Simulated scan of single mutants.
Amino acid sequence: MASTIILQPLSSFTFTTKEAQPEEDPSVAARLQRLQNNYEDFGMRRTVEGVLVVHEHGHPHVLMLQIANAFFKLPGDYLRPGEDETEGIKERLDARLAPVASDPASFGPAGPMGGAGGDWEVGDCLAQWWRPAFETFMYPYIPAHITKPKECKRLYLINMPPTKILAVPKNMKLLAVPLFELYDNSQRYGPQLAAIPHLLSRYNFVYA
């Protein structure tokens, strides 16, 4: 039986900006090299990303970050060795999208507003993707000949209170991408993001 999830309207959230967050690596090659260096020291990398779903015009939309007007990604990042996944993804979401404590937008008449940060509700793990080698390709399974994958990325469904304040780094855009735009559109979004409509098909959505 499909689970039911209540989606909040996009208009119920408050959006603001904060200081830019430059990418850690200047190029894809540099990112893969750092992955290899870290693998030699710590073993397989664990990455967590959040799938934040809202509704607009009677249709589910996924919140995604766009970098350099071209590259799309879900909010999240890699974990430290031994770090708990649930607490880790909350921390990564705060780092990426929570307003800074000194931001006036995060304060109400009685002090900090409840939706400022740290109140992410981590739901189901929707998928895990595996990187078998120090290359860009990731798969939703471990290839048969691979015994030591280099990275495991898990996607978690994230619920947010309707009063949530989202602060977007100035060098990024936060876009609400409809499921019909993602579906079967790996050419634009890549296979991981294009698979999200399939992953969400197990749920019945109720629009608040």
Rank of each mutant, 00 (worst) to 15 (best):
N38Q: 13
Y39I: 03
E40F: 11
R45L: 10
E49L: 14
E49C: 02
V54D: 07
H57Q: 15
G58I: 03
P60E: 04
L63H: 08
I67N: 12
K73L: 09
G76K: 00
G76D: 04
E83Q: 05
D84V: 04
E85G: 11
E85T: 11
I89Y: 08
L93W: 01
L93A: 07
P99D: 05
V100R: 07
V100P: 08
V100Y: 03
V100T: 05
S102D: 12
D103P: 01
A105E: 13
G108S: 13
P109A: 15
A110V: 03
A116Y: 11
G118Q: 08
G118Y: 01
E121R: 13
V122M: 06
G123K: 07
D124P: 02
L126A: 05
Q128D: 10
R131W: 11
R131D: 01
P132N: 02
P132I: 03
E135F: 04
T136F: 09
F137N: 15
F137D: 15
M138D: 06
I142L: 05
H145V: 04
K148P: 00
K148S: 08
N159R: 06
N159M: 07
M160H: 13
K164E: 08
K173A: 04
L174N: 01
L175W: 07
L175K: 04
A176F: 01
A176G: 02
P178G: 00
L179G: 03
